[in-house]
Design a binder for these strands. Structure first.
Length: 875
DNA sequence: TTTGTCACG
DNA sequence: ACGTACGTGACAAAC
């Protein structure tokens, strides 16, 4: 039988939360609806995620409770409930009736007490309980069987308090939350506490003494004379406050858990009330099918040494379980297989020996489904199996469906498609110092659940992608790209240790000299890398003016220091020290640590991370190797071909983002400029300043270049003024003149923002999506950010689409032309290869040809290439 | 772990 | 009046 899952909701608290979190919405009758709407959104999400078997919404009843007998000012001084909220309670009740959720209130008790009592009863029955409230006080109810969900910021954003989470957050057990309230009080409930004791002191005391009573028994040992006096004077107050804060878990509640069974909403009634309140999005949601989560309580995943033949067929989920994220080196634990009925786990050591399994894995005609195919293929390669025929990748599907969710493990990915039946990696392996691999049965069960979920979710995910017309993006772009990136990671790029060491020695020498110089000028030795110490030397000892502050002290960032450069010689040295220090620690020492025994660096490309569709590179990041300053650029001399007689070859798109902008906006002037092959910054300057192209000065060109950048980023006058070091007014004038010169661009930006406001998302040319919920926010900052993002993401994202497509075509082309050349790296708008010297001539023709034809725009794409013995020389 | 800083496109 | 250019990752210091 399925384990029971009881959801207990704190009605009043959630209604208040929803009311204050959302703007004042009304229906066409003028009735305020924001609290009902927020409540419904939250309810919908919780129902999907938690799949409860039993539910109850508890309400506060009446004005006075048993707590008022102890303290008549309890909850005194509270603001009256706003009438805009009061009028919503009848609708809330009606809506909950339509959901067929039991509601309950009890004279002279609060909702907390009802919930506390029922949660204990449910625990006795062996049920799993979730308590949901906007009030942190309820975290005292957390226990082995009870998780407390507290809404954060908005209304659907939830923080989950298990006893472990309470401990993490406060360093206290859930029961001690009551003691904490007793000591510190609670102004919202008018609970006094001990005057002068806040959260910090309360926690400190409780860590030492355990409880309020313990504090008074050990009063002699309390450190601090003042504190001791305060505690002594207010003993009664503290004890009464604790009593007030304690949730009564033995209230005379008349309903039993069995009375709460939840069988889903009355759809017709729900539709009626949503229509009455004009809840459009919610109406769509109630009709939408939800992925079924099958109970995984009785889940079985035997550990076997060979795969059953029944599972070696077309359309089976595989999952490689690894003891860490870095799949090039992490221990491989084993392989789980699941067809949604039967699930097994094969320990890593037995995989290679199972010949039938291996030939199934390398048989392209048998589709394998998985999460993170790139990692799975890499792990299988390490086990000696070259797998083929990946038919589905849950990670990529989830990322395409919505890039904004953090897809850290299969549990979080599956949750995106409504599946909550698998535990997180963290809950199985632990985290930080307590991280460990559990016994094989537990690993098998965990890996098995993941494979099982993939098997069940494939159809749901693919349907969703098809519904949003993203199937092509997923199947033809991201899925094949995953294998190509995997290949690039596995090949790696050779790094010459001696070159790095040589540059490192040079840097260390210079750093020492500069450090001595700085200390001498300052008249003291201090840690230049410490912003705190540096700030006190510059702005206190030397008396330089502090232009900008951070929330922890003075800002010493480069742009701030540059403004002070004329005022003191020490500044130049500090800027130099910073620059060289960065090179040494990140690029010399950092990269040396990443060279594998094969002499190569194997980065990891994150394919499901960025909000725009770009890749990112980690461990190490090979997308930010210095280039702008010569001293740093020399690092690139260490990146060399891996075979004797080979060369490095690099090709980059010229102005890809502005070309994309020209295409997407259809602006005639911009299109014309690119078709004529003009220098785009000079042409922009000529248009903006109304001078002939040959009269454009270098300053004008520089300003135009900054404006072009600004346009791509979603321009703001402030941003431009910072980058050009001019006044905000002047920057604003530049922008106006630009937009007047390129009216198509202005129209495109305005339309993009309007469209995003209407649909809630923006798209790229290949239909990549980014949702921008903040675009309708009443918070200026959030809204402005979303608006700039709405302008930037289609451009940056389309550029990412283009190079990804080029990579797929390139991989194909290298094979077709029988070239030995290997694609090694991608740096957003450039591709880096290594190849035999005699292939350079071919690459010089083929690579630009492929990259330029990746996607047809109404302006040409232009690619520049270069080759040389090291990456440094490809310029 | 979070913050400030700085490397890249 | 708001406080920002867009997208990333790594390191050192300080908590």
């Amino acid at each position: 039988m399925t384990k029971r899952k009881v959801l207990l909701l704190d009605g009043n608290s959630l209604a208040y939360r929803a009311f204050f979190a959302l703007p004042l919405l009304t229906n066409d009758q003028g009735v305020h609806t924001n609290a009902v709407y927020g409540f419904a959104m939250m309810l919908q999400k919780i129902l999907e995620e938690e799949k409860p078997t039993h539910m109850l919404v508890a309400w506060d009843a009446g004005k006075t409770t048993f707590r008022h007998e102890t303290f008549k000012e309890y909850k005194g001084g509270r603001q009256k409930t706003p009438p805009e909220l009061s009028e919503q309670f009848p609708y809330l009740r009606k809506m909950l009736d339509a959901y067929q959720i039991r509601q309950y209130e009890l004279e002279s008790y609060e909702a907390d007490d009802i919930i506390g009592t029922l949660s204990r009863e449910a625990g006795k029955d062996g049920a799993e309980t979730v308590v949901i409230s906007g009030d942190k006080d309820l975290t005292q109810l957390a226990s082995g069987d009870v998780t407390v969900f507290i809404t954060r910021k908005g209304i659907t954003d939830i923080e989950r308090y298990t006893p472990e989470h309470v401990m993490e957050k406060y360093g206290l057990s859930p029961e001690q939350i009551i003691d904490m309230k007793g000591l510190m009080g609670d102004s919202s409930d008018n609970i006094p506490g001990v005057p002068g004791v806040g959260e910090k002191t309360a926690i400190k005391l409780l860590k030492q003494f355990g409880t309020v009573e313990g504090v008074y028994e050990g009063l002699d040992q309390v450190s601090g004379k003042k504190l001791k006096e305060k505690l002594e004077e207010n003993e009664e107050l503290a004890k009464m406050s604790k009593q007030l804060a304690t949730i009564n878990t033995a209230s005379p509640v008349e309903v039993k858990i069995d009375d709460l069974s939840y069988g889903g909403p009355d759809k017709d009634e729900i539709v009626k009330i949503f229509q009455e309140l004009n809840f459009k999005t919610l109406l769509e949601k109630v009709d939408a099918p939800v992925a079924a989560t099958e109970p995984l309580e009785d889940f079985e995943c035997p550990v076997v040494s060979a795969a059953p033949v029944s599972l070696l067929t077309d359309g089976v989920a595989i999952h490689l379980e690894l003891a860490g994220e870095q799949y090039h080196t992490a221990e491989i634990l084993g392989l789980a297989l699941s067809d949604g009925e039967e699930t097994v786990f094969i320990p890593a050591g037995d995989v290679k020996a199972d010949e039938r399994l291996c030939s199934w894995l390398s048989d392209e005609s048998n589709a394998k489904w998985c999460t993170d195919s790139k990692a799975a293929l890499a792990a299988l390669t390490r086990l000696g199996v070259e797998a083929e025929g990946i038919g589905f990748d849950l990670l990529l599907a989830a990322y395409i469906a919505n890039p904004s969710v953090s897809l850290t493990d299969t549990a979080s990915i599956a949750r995106e498609f409504g599946w909550t039946g698998i535990p997180t990696d963290e809950s199985v392996y632990g985290k930080g110092a307590r991280k460990a691999i559990p016994d094989e049965t537990a690993v098998a069960a965990h890996a098995g659940r993941k494979a099982f979920a993939v098997s069940k979710l494939r159809a749901v995910a693919e349907d969703k992608l098809k519904a949003n017309e993203q199937d092509g993006l997923y199947r033809e772009l991201e899925l094949p790209l995953a294998s190509i990136l995997g290949k690039m990671e596995a090949i790696g790029v050779k790094a010459d240790r001696d070159t790095l060491l040589g540059i490192g020695e040079d840097l260390s020498g210079k750093l020492e000299a500069i450090e001595r110089e700085i200390h001498e000028i300052a008249g003291e030795t201090f840690n230049i890398n410490s912003t705190k110490q540096l700030g006190s030397v510059l702005f206190e000892k030397l008396g330089l003016p502090a232009v900008k502050k951070t929330k922890t002290g003075y800002s010493t960032a480069a742009d701030v220091l540059e403004k002070l450069e004329g005022r003191h010689e020490i500044i130049r040295h500090i800027l130099d020290y910073r620059q060289l220090g960065k090179l040494n620690s990140t690029y010399i020492e950092g990269l040396l640590k990443e060279i594998h025994p094969d002499g190569k660096i194997h980065t990891y490309y994150q394919q499901a991370l960025t909000q725009t569709g770009r890749l990112s590179s980690t461990n190490p990041n090979l997308q930010n190797i210095p280039v702008r300053i010569e001293e740093g650029r020399k690092i690139r001399k260490a990146f060399v071909p891996s075979e004797p007689g080979w060369m490095m070859f690099a090709a980059d798109y010229s102005q890809i983002e502005l070309r994309v902008l020209a295409h997407m906006s259809g602006d005639e002037r911009l299109i014309e400029a690119f078709r004529e092959g003009a220098d785009i910054h000079t042409r922009t300057a000529s248009d903006v300043f109304h001078v002939a192209p040959d009269e454009v000065t270098s300053d004008m060109r520089r300003a135009a270049k900054a404006v072009n950048f600004g346009i791509v980023y979603g321009i703001s006058d402030y941003g431009l003024s910072q980058s050009l070091n001019i006044s905000r007014k002047e920057a604003g004038e530049f922008i106006d003149r630009y937009l007047a010169s390129f009216p198509g661009v202005k129209a495109y930006m305005d339309n993009g923002v309007a469209e995003a406001r209407k649909t809630g998302y923006v798209t790229t040319m290949l239909n990549r999506r980014r949702y921008l919920p903040d675009i309708t926010s009443s918070n200026f900052n959030l809204r402005s950010f979303a608006e700039r993002t709405a302008m930037n993401t289609p451009i940056q994202g389309t550029a990412a689409d283009i190079i990804k497509k080029a990579m797929i075509m390139m991989d194909d082309r290298l094979e077709k032309e029988n070239l030995q050349a290997r694609m090694l790296l991608q740096v957003h708008d450039e591709l880096i290869f290594e190849c035999p010297e005699e292939e350079i001539a071919v690459l010089e023709k083929v690579v630009p040809e492929v990259m330029e034809s990746a996607l047809e725009l109404n302006v040409p794409l232009k690619v520049e290439s270069a080759s040389g013995p090291t990456w440094y020389d490809t310029k």
